[in-house]
Amino acid sequence: MEWTNFIRLLNLLFNGALTSIQLFFYTLLFSLPLGLAVALGRMSKRPYIRGPIKFYILIMRGTPLLLQIIFVYFAPSFMLPEGFRINLDRFVAAVIAFSLNYAAYFAEIYRGGIESIPQGQYEAAAVLGFTKSQTFFRIILPQVIKRILPPISNEVITLVKDTALIQILGISELFRVAKNESSRLFSTLPLFVAGLFYLAMNWVVTRLFHLAEKKLSYYK
C-alpha cells in the first residue's frame, strides 16, 4: 500500500476511534455512579427494592449486550403508547444501553468490595459518632475502591473492546470503519491496524489503573 493511502486509512481509523472513545467515556461517566446506586439497592434490606434490582442485574448480565443495544434503540419507537413514541439518536441509544449494562457489572464488583470490609470498621465509626453517610463515604468507600481496582480494570478493558458492538446500529466506530475499508481495499490490513488501535487504548487504560493501584498502595 502506498504511503498516502496508509495515512488516509490511519486518518479514517482515528476518526472511528474518536467515536469509540466517546462512547467509552460516556459509559464510564454514567455507569460508575449508577453501579454504586445499584449495588446499594442490591444490598438493601427491603425486598421490594432488592428484588427488582436482582432482576435487573440478571437481565443485564444474562442477555447479550448486542441484543440490549438493539432493544434500547428500537423499543422506544414501537413499544411506547401511541403519541409517546420517540426515535432515539443512535449514539444516545448506544450510551444508554452500555451504561445500563456496565452498571450491572460494576454493581456486583462494588457489592463484593463493600461486603469485604470488616464489620469492625462500621462499629468503630459508629461509636465515634460518624453518621451512616459519613461512615460510608469517609471510611468504607475509600477502602472499597482500593480493593476493587483490579476487577474494575478488567471491566474497563472489556469496555474498550465492546464499543465495537455499536456498529450494529450503523455507527461508524473504529471496527466498522476498519471493516468497510477492508472490503473496499480487498485487504485484511485495516482490521489488523484497528486491532493495534484497540491495543494502544488498552495499554493506556492498563497504565492508568497501574498508577492508581500504586497511588493507593500507601496502606494495606
Binding site: V127, I139, Q143
Partner: peptide
C-alpha cells in the same frame, strides 16, 4: 461513650 475493641478496628487508609 468511647469504645476500644479487641481487634483495634483502626481505619487502615
Amino acid at each position: 461513650l468511647g469504645m476500644v475493641f479487641q481487634n483495634f478496628n483502626l481505619f487502615p487508609h
